[in-house]
Amino acid sequence: MAPKATTPPPVLDDRALNRAVLARQLLLRRVPRSETTVEQAVGRLVGLQAQNVRPPYYALAARLADFAPAELSEPMADRRIVRIVTLRSTIHTHTADDALALRPLLQAGGPDRELKAFRARGGLDGVDLDRLGAIARELVEAEPRTMKELRDALLAHWPDADPPSLSVAARCLLPLVQVTPRGLWGRSGQVRLTTVTHWLGREPGPPASLDDTVLRYLAAFGPASVKDFQSWSGLTRTRDAFERLRPGLAVFGSEHGAELFDLPEAPRPAADTPAPPRFLPEYDNLLLSHADRRRVVADDRHAGLTWKGNQSYPVFLVDGFLAGVWRLDEDPRTGTAALVMEPFGEPSAERRAELTEEAERTLAVLAPGSAAYDVRFGTVRG
């Protein structure tokens, strides 16, 4: 008897995937404050990239209606939200619960790999890593330390080691948070570190499970492939989790042949759903959380134009796709603030008007004390 023919899964093209991920990322419409708190939004997005201080604020300004920077600063000062190395061994802003639960799961996806690379360079030869971790824990829990202070203290125990490798090893071995005032809006401060348990005053519960984290990822970034999840998390060999979850998931194909998974009831708006312009920070996870970025970056030449050296520029979206870079210029002498856009290609008059309106709204949130606002279009890129 011939085997039963299987029906191929429905195919979602790049525009359909674009609208789906924008809906999950709260970028098709700003969410009213009656529907979510800042903490709930940070948790729903499974954290916000926070390599620099301002990106989490920019990210929420693009996603939440009537957002004010103090709404993120306050829970950070109260230790309900923290800055910690998690996804891809990079700094993220997480809820306290996620900081405790996600870091153990993601340890192998970044910190362990980074530590292995430093050991391969020979800078930690002769260093007992268990002892280093114990000493470093005592140091940062006695008082928050800068990386230099931590390095100098550890160097007294291992004078022949590579100094930067010692402090990096401590950061990889321990779940270290950046203590406030670092990360607070309008405040300054060096990066000082202590353990997440010491900062929060409580021990972690069970670590996040891989299966539950896959489901949370799909809720925030789906539909997505196994490779997409691995690009977001930094973890490898995660297909078994998707196979365990497959019976309860919706399965699609991409127009490029990838198998995509999703939560059955998750929003998948029509491909022609209007997508207003949005101004996003550098390193926004919208652009970093898929192996195939064509759902957001229609022309991959443009991705290279968002970087300079090791730094990324803030970017803006038009019709849901990457369309240029921007910057916020604030002049303390005159009290003015300007948002300057550098588009990829020449936008139409209608698009320029839409971008100008969104830029004015963004300025009102991010530079509320300015005496005057200015919106400018700079040199067209590409």
Rank of each mutant, 00 (worst) to 15 (best):
D97Y: 05
L105C: 02
V85L: 09
L102F: 11
I91E: 01
A96Q: 08
M76C: 13
I84M: 11
A99S: 10
I81R: 03
D98Q: 15
L105K: 00
L102C: 07
I84C: 09
L87P: 00
T86N: 04
R80T: 00
R103V: 04
P104K: 12
R79Q: 02
D98Y: 09
L102Q: 08
P104V: 05
L87N: 03
R83G: 03
M76E: 09
V82L: 15
M76T: 14
L87E: 02
T95Q: 08
I91S: 06
D97L: 10
L102K: 07
T86D: 02
T86I: 07
I84A: 10
I91Y: 12
L87W: 10
L100F: 10
T86F: 06
R79H: 07
V82P: 04
I91R: 04
M76P: 03
T93Q: 09
D78L: 05
S89F: 09
T95R: 12
L106V: 01
A101K: 11
A99Y: 12
R88H: 12
A77P: 00
H92S: 05
H94K: 09
L87R: 09
P75G: 07
M76G: 03
V85C: 12
A77Y: 02
R83T: 04
V82R: 07
P75M: 10
T86K: 06
E74R: 14
